[in-house]
Structure formats: C-alpha cells, structure tokens
Amino acid sequence: MTTRPWRTGGADRRPGRGRLLALGATLIRERGGDVDWDQLADPEGNEFCVFAPSV
C-alpha cells in the first residue's frame, strides 16, 4: 500500500472530497464528533481517509 499526502482544497477539505466523489469514490463515513476525517472507498472498494491539511 502506498500513501501520500494530497492537498484537497485548502483548509476546508470538502471541495477535495467532492472532487473525489465526482471521480467515483463512495462516502462511507462522514467526519463528525471525535472523528476528524472522512472515510471513502475508491471504485474498486479500497477504503481511504481524507484529512484536513495540517497547518
């Protein structure tokens, strides 16, 4: 497995999440509560997380 940072739209990651969804990803779990990331899956079912960029 390879992981690498990918900037997804400045301080607000939602524009990046929208782009990933438009490219075929599926939202599995949205951030909220004590979870600070969105969990998505690519079209093949591989799950990954989208975090807000650190400052």
Results as ranks from 00 to 15, higher is better:
residue 5 P to V: 15
residue 5 P to I: 09
residue 5 P to R: 10
residue 5 P to T: 08
residue 6 W to S: 13
residue 7 R to A: 07
residue 7 R to C: 06
residue 7 R to F: 15
residue 8 T to P: 02
residue 8 T to K: 11
residue 9 G to C: 14
residue 9 G to D: 13
residue 9 G to I: 01
residue 10 G to M: 14
residue 10 G to L: 11
residue 10 G to A: 13
residue 10 G to D: 15
residue 10 G to E: 04
residue 11 A to W: 02
residue 12 D to A: 01
residue 12 D to C: 10
residue 13 R to G: 04
residue 13 R to M: 14
residue 13 R to I: 14
residue 13 R to A: 07
residue 14 R to T: 15
residue 14 R to M: 12
residue 14 R to Y: 09
residue 14 R to G: 04
residue 14 R to W: 02
residue 15 P to S: 02
residue 15 P to I: 06
residue 15 P to D: 12
residue 16 G to S: 13
residue 16 G to R: 10
residue 16 G to Q: 02
residue 17 R to V: 13
residue 17 R to F: 04
residue 18 G to V: 05
residue 18 G to A: 09
residue 18 G to D: 15
residue 19 R to A: 10
residue 19 R to T: 15
residue 20 L to S: 13
residue 20 L to I: 10
residue 21 L to D: 04
residue 21 L to T: 03
residue 22 A to N: 09
residue 22 A to G: 09
residue 22 A to E: 12
residue 23 L to M: 13
residue 23 L to A: 06
residue 23 L to G: 15
residue 24 G to T: 07
residue 24 G to D: 05
residue 24 G to P: 05
residue 24 G to L: 06
residue 25 A to W: 00
residue 25 A to V: 02
residue 25 A to H: 11
residue 25 A to P: 13
residue 26 T to K: 06
residue 26 T to H: 06
residue 27 L to E: 15
residue 27 L to G: 10
residue 27 L to V: 11
residue 27 L to S: 08
residue 27 L to H: 03
residue 27 L to R: 06
residue 28 I to W: 00
residue 28 I to H: 12
residue 28 I to Q: 08
residue 28 I to C: 00
residue 29 R to D: 14
residue 29 R to T: 04
residue 29 R to E: 12
residue 29 R to V: 03
residue 30 E to W: 00
residue 30 E to F: 00
residue 30 E to K: 09
residue 31 R to N: 14
residue 31 R to I: 12
residue 31 R to D: 09
residue 31 R to F: 09
residue 32 G to L: 07
residue 32 G to H: 05
residue 32 G to S: 11
residue 33 G to K: 05
residue 33 G to D: 10
residue 33 G to I: 06
residue 33 G to V: 00
residue 33 G to H: 08
residue 34 D to M: 11
residue 34 D to Q: 01
residue 35 V to L: 04
residue 35 V to T: 04
residue 35 V to I: 05
residue 35 V to N: 10
residue 36 D to Q: 11
residue 36 D to M: 03
residue 36 D to S: 10
residue 36 D to N: 10
residue 36 D to H: 14
residue 36 D to E: 13
residue 36 D to L: 05
residue 37 W to G: 05
residue 37 W to P: 00
residue 37 W to N: 06
residue 38 D to H: 09
residue 38 D to E: 08
residue 38 D to L: 13
residue 38 D to P: 07
residue 39 Q to G: 07
residue 39 Q to S: 02
residue 39 Q to D: 13
residue 39 Q to V: 15
residue 40 L to Q: 11
residue 40 L to G: 02
residue 40 L to T: 04
residue 40 L to H: 06
residue 40 L to M: 11
residue 40 L to V: 08
residue 40 L to P: 05
residue 40 L to E: 08
residue 41 A to S: 13
residue 41 A to Q: 03
residue 41 A to N: 01
residue 41 A to I: 09
residue 42 D to L: 10
residue 42 D to C: 05
residue 42 D to H: 01
residue 42 D to T: 08
residue 42 D to Q: 01
residue 43 P to W: 02
residue 43 P to N: 01
residue 43 P to V: 05
residue 43 P to D: 01
residue 43 P to H: 09
residue 43 P to F: 00
residue 44 E to P: 04
residue 44 E to A: 12
residue 44 E to C: 00
residue 44 E to V: 01
residue 45 G to T: 04
residue 45 G to E: 07
residue 45 G to K: 12
residue 45 G to W: 06
residue 46 N to Q: 04
residue 46 N to A: 11
residue 46 N to T: 08
residue 47 E to S: 12
residue 47 E to I: 07
residue 47 E to D: 04
residue 47 E to A: 11
residue 47 E to Y: 00
residue 47 E to V: 06
